[in-house]
Design a protein around this nucleic acid. Structure first.
Lengths: 317, 317
DNA sequence: GCCTTGAGGACAGGTGTTGTCCTCAAGGGG
DNA sequence: CCCCTTGAGGACAACACCTGTCCTCAAGGC
């Protein structure tokens, strides 16, 4: 019964929209009798979505939190807001679970109506980049890559190598992963006949994507470790050591564990050890906390800080 | 037919999970014949979700983007990732449509299973705050306020006023809005018998929320304007004027319109005019672009920059 | 105690669903 | 060009399900 299914979905959407609904209110919206509403509510419950009900004058129905995730019924604005917001978070790398975020984002964008996709694009183009350490990555490129990996679509792109030379690649994309502050794509390069790791911010995809391929066995089951290993050797990463003139507790509160290890020195200072591939980023990151600090390593970072200090001195007039 | 509805949902979820599905693959997953799958696909199409199909050896079904948003069927990880990522984006204020984002986030959190909510909380507690200008706001407080507004639940909270005095408020919350770089709550204060605007970062909510209330007529239909008007007078906002030594085009690319107006001066410089309530934030914001610049107003900002420059000089050793 | 609101059994008429069987139509590969 | 694969969809019979109506309870709030 199509009407029944549609009505169940509509009922769910209503229950997600507002918290409390009276029975006859729902009946009116769904254009059925209250008896049928009760039966539909029962059906939702059988499907595992807990609908609480209270009797009496201020009674009504309310969707509770169940054991599993019910379908999210978003209106257009909400869908756009999620795509934009999540995209900003992902490309800035703030969420702490970026790979899953990208997957979710890719799922959403796949089913996003074209008109909404346009609105998302418009918003993204004038939204702030907010990353301290490392440039932000284009969220739409990320989702495209994520979809290609998921669907095993061949992917062609222009790649701008470290030394500036451009090349055209035809690849079988397998995994997208974040290492340090950058996104990488692990893909089988058709022409080189080998695995390659590409920096996502150097990729300019060529649409549309190519034909399907059958996935190969990965060079290492732990892709993140594999990429981290390969890329660290790539000599971008520098070790940063600094003394911060705040308590270790306070420092830990502001600097997440995965960015740096904090070791207490005394009550009012601590040492920070971290790795960075973008020294300017690190400079701003450290500066922004407002603490007094001293950088011990690397010397280049001290140069950057000196340059920054001069620049700010000039700015202050 | 309950099974039919459940199956339609499951079918949608499968189609959202992967792009291409063969008919008998779906039939296997859903434990029905391919004939029924075809019928179910038809039902989805009738519901407005366009399912494309291709015949031939490499044929299959694929969910396309339709005219309206289909229900999003998220797995647990994706739901957590969205809650965390979107929460980070909202509290940092990067999305450009924060009010809708908060609404979507509130909707998601309302139906988030408790175990997932715990995971979200755990992630949030050690996620970076990334805002340059103004401290970040707790996403869970925002969603609580958003839900209270939506459901017309009375709200009690501790409020820490500008001068540090604390007070206990019982309110009827009406709107949540962002003005400048801060979140505000427009609420009717029961004890003061009048409208009040509260800064969200000064609110510590007392759970659970109180009984329902019937909304009052707002003091101004345009709440954002109302809040902006009331709050600007509050003298937090300072006018910032600076010369940037980059082309206006480049500046516009990095600084979104709603933060500042950029006026070209010549090919390599432009003027920026903006408002700020957190001068340190503005200092970092300007510094982080890496451009040379000069601040003309306010003088305090120049003091901050000088202080920052000194601090960085010390940091460089 | 009364009113309101949800719960749910019974019943009848109507409608939808499913698997089976069959015939087409459209791609892709040899 | 033919053949195989895969989706499309009509027909049909057996069956299950859905809906509105009617009625009796149970639980809150005033």
């Amino acid at each position: 019964m199509l009407q029944t299914s549609a009505r169940l979905l509509k009922l769910l959407s209503l229950l997600e929209m507002r918290r409390d609904w009276a029975g006859d209110e729902l009946a009116g919206r769904l254009e059925v009798t209250t008896r049928t509403v009760r039966r539909d509510v029962d059906k939702l419950r059988e499907l595992g979505y807990p609908v609480h009900a209270t009797t009496g004058t201020a009674g009504g129905y309310r969707l509770g939190a169940g054991a599993s995730m019910p379908p999210l019924l978003l209106d257009d604005e909400e869908a756009v807001a999620i795509a934009v917001g999540l995209g900003a978070a992902v490309s800035a790398g703030v969420s702490g679970m970026e790979e899953t975020s990208v997957r979710a984002l890719a799922k959403l964008e796949q089913i996003l109506p074209p008109k909404l996709r346009k609105r998302v694009g418009a918003f993204r183009s004038h939204t702030v980049g907010i990353s301290f350490e490392g440039q932000t990555v284009d969220a739409s490129v990320l989702t495209l890559l994520a979809n290609s990996c998921r669907d095993h679509d061949r992917l062609r792109f222009e790649y701008r190598a470290h030394d500036g030379t451009e090349s055209y690649r035809i690849t079988e994309p397998h995994r997208l992963a974040r290492a340090g502050s950058r996104w990488y794509l692990l893909a089988w390069d058709i022409d080189r006949v080998d695995w390659r790791i590409f920096r996502v911010d150097r990729i300019t995809p060529v649409t549309p994507t190519g034909p399907r391929f059958t996935p190969r066995e990965l060079p290492d089951p732990d892709v993140s470790a594999y990429i981290a290993r390969k890329v660290t050797v790539g000599a971008y990463q520098r070790k940063v050591v600094a003394t911060l003139h705040v308590s270790a507790d306070e420092a830990r509160q502001r600097i997440p564990e995965r960015y740096a290890t904090i070791t207490p020195v005394d009550e009012n200072s601590c040492t920070m050890e971290s790795r960075a591939d973008n020294l300017d980023g690190s400079a701003y990151y450290l500066a922004a906390f407002g603490w007094d600090f001293e950088v011990h390593e690397p010397p280049e970072l001290r140069d950057r800080l000196r340059a920054m200090a001069e620049r700010l001195g000039r700015a202050a007039g």
